[in-house]
Amino acid sequence: MMLRLDHVTKVFRIGAFGGRTVTAVKDVSFDVAPGEVVSLIGESGSGKSTLGRLILGLSRATGGTITFDGRPARAGKDYYRDVQGIFQDPFSSFNPVFKADRVFAMIKESYHPGVPEGEWAERVRTALRDVRLNPDQVLGKFPHQLSGGQLQRLLIARALLLEIRLLVADEITSMLDASTRIDVLNLLAELKTRGLGVLYITHDLSLGNYLAERTIVLREGAVVEMGPTGDVFGDPLHPYTRELLSAVPRLHEDWADAEDPGTCLYHERGASGGLLEAAPGHLVACARSKTC
């Protein structure tokens, strides 16, 4: 396994004197193999971005371990050669005083100093075209001169230039229009066949469904269900997964109201402690209480 999380927990201290705590991530275990897209789904505040930041070494887990190639995941240049993240709000990821070409030049300086200028310029243009940006239209511009979708694609191009092995993509397609979004998803699908592993964080179930081999549903920091995408979406076992699926707007159907949550498979099978493996690789948590 390339990336592995074992019983990862993250507790934040909040309030003036750190008197209160929030458990943002609770006992989460999963892995991502090379060439695999794993999608992480859940409502806002469910801990998706916190998990992404932990994996990227931007914050330290309170409990459990995160390893990459068997070594602890730690922020640093070596780690970032292999692992990069792209986040939700593209405006916050760019330094507003640098034009796009400067941003790419800085990547060369830190990660690929040996590449000749001319070749680097060509790589930049290829990466931009891969994300369907016209290099002449974006290279000379400051971040505020680009639209939200253009910026987001610029970030993806930047990650591609690093030739990384794992991409943590946190809601990267939420601001893209439908056709660009498909282009970006198809691009990720292509990179995956070349061995890139992707943790695809999204709240859009249809995109996760399109791209991911495996799906993890997160709620209040804990995994409620995970398994092969077709099983999780085709045969959702947890009432919460069913509720999410019913809220998805569909093109040719009316918006369904939440259906009867149904029974708790976990209890019916008399399971206890951890997740129940209902089918090969398809795990589900108890629906009745968050603690059992």
Partner: peptide, 24 residues
């Protein structure tokens, strides 16, 4: 083309790919 490029839940895509709109 835009409407045709929408992925939907409840569809199994496996290796099937939707098409974006070529060019920019």
């Amino acid at each position: 083309l835009l409407v045709d490029s929408l992925p939907e839940v409840g569809v199994r895509y496996a290796e099937r790919r939707l098409e974006g709109i070529a060019g920019s």
